[in-house]
Simulated assay, not measured.
Amino acid sequence: MIKGVVFDLDGTLFDHHGAALCGLRAWAPTLGPTSLAPDEVEAVWFALEDRHYQGYLDGRLSHRGQRRVRMAEFSQALGLPVPDDLDEAYTGYLAAYVAAWCAYDDALPALLAVRRAGRQVAVLTNGDQDQQEAKLRSIGLSDVCGPVFASSRLGVTKPDPRAFAHVAAALDLSPGELLMVGDNLDVDVRGARDAGLRAVHVDRPTTTLADLSQMYT
């Protein structure tokens, strides 16, 4: 019997890609002229994000370090000088990104439905604890999402079974009593199943939290 539901954050409850895209489109033109087309600028940014954020999750870069590398390589790709102060340069993007933070429309109803069903709820996310909690406060979900477990504080990242085991222990439930809900098939779904949890895949826009509600309520 499912007694608790664990949600991923980015791409599941929080529209990271949408916020990042809005932030990039507002910020990138302020950096200076480039020969790249807008879609090429976006492709470069997200490729760098994927590569270097994974470096942070793998422990090869600090959270600030991956931002610095992305800023430097993005400037080079645009044919612009690399800023002397990479941290300061990145704050322009960060401000635009934060301004665009939003939850998916089905996020709050899903969390409330789980709570009404009498099940525990939690968030398990790969990322920086402070930033992930700030996202949840900003998008109005912090009061209903339950405890937040971020990899920066856990010391391990999904799909490591220890991340899922930590959540189960904290909720005083067995892994088999938990359902993981996430958008990443390998990290969230297969990782959870390998750790003994049940799991469902949120494959937006094909499937949403509303489509899967019968599985977690």
Score class of each variant (00 low, 15 high):
100 A>H: 03
155 G>W: 02
33 P>T: 12
93 Y>N: 13
10 D>C: 11
19 A>V: 02
134 A>V: 04
120 Q>I: 00
96 A>I: 11
183 D>T: 10
147 P>C: 05
15 D>E: 03
131 Q>P: 00
121 V>G: 03
99 A>M: 05
67 R>G: 08
129 Q>D: 15
160 D>R: 05
79 G>H: 00
158 K>D: 03
217 T>A: 12
68 R>Y: 10
52 H>P: 08
100 A>M: 01
68 R>G: 11
216 Y>E: 05
146 G>D: 11
178 L>M: 11
15 D>N: 06
84 D>L: 14
142 S>Q: 10
126 N>I: 03
61 L>N: 07
146 G>Q: 10
119 R>I: 01
67 R>C: 12
154 L>C: 10
188 D>T: 00
108 L>Q: 07
172 D>A: 15
203 D>H: 11
2 I>E: 08
78 L>F: 11
32 G>F: 08
41 V>P: 02
75 S>V: 10
107 A>D: 06
184 N>S: 14
31 L>C: 06
39 D>Q: 15
174 S>R: 13
105 D>L: 12
3 K>Q: 14
110 A>D: 00
99 A>P: 10
201 H>A: 01
129 Q>I: 03
197 L>Q: 02
205 P>R: 00
175 P>L: 12
47 A>T: 15
165 A>T: 11
202 V>C: 07
53 Y>V: 13
70 R>L: 07
62 S>T: 15
66 Q>E: 09
129 Q>H: 15
177 E>K: 09
4 G>H: 05
213 S>T: 13
40 E>T: 13
44 V>D: 06
92 G>T: 11
6 V>S: 02
102 C>T: 13
47 A>N: 11
172 D>N: 15
23 G>Y: 02
112 L>I: 11
75 S>Y: 13
17 H>W: 14
45 W>Y: 15
215 M>K: 12
209 L>W: 04
192 A>Q: 04
12 T>P: 07
86 L>K: 05
171 L>C: 06
190 R>H: 13
48 L>V: 10
143 D>T: 13
198 R>E: 14
41 V>L: 08
35 S>L: 14
159 P>K: 06
33 P>Y: 03
140 G>H: 08
111 L>W: 07
199 A>M: 06
87 D>R: 08
113 A>D: 12
146 G>W: 06
205 P>G: 05
53 Y>I: 06
24 L>G: 01
204 R>F: 04
126 N>P: 05
84 D>Y: 04
159 P>C: 05
136 L>S: 04
180 M>C: 06
95 A>M: 00
128 D>I: 00
25 R>M: 00
132 Q>H: 07
142 S>F: 09
147 P>A: 04
176 G>V: 08
173 L>V: 09
69 V>N: 03
127 G>V: 04
128 D>Y: 04
195 A>P: 01
84 D>H: 14
213 S>R: 15
84 D>F: 08
156 V>T: 11
2 I>S: 00
63 H>M: 11
138 S>K: 10
213 S>M: 12
163 A>S: 12
52 H>V: 03
158 K>F: 07
29 P>N: 02
65 G>C: 03
203 D>Q: 12
160 D>T: 01
140 G>M: 01
23 G>K: 07
176 G>W: 02
51 R>T: 15
173 L>F: 01
216 Y>T: 05
111 L>P: 05
39 D>S: 14
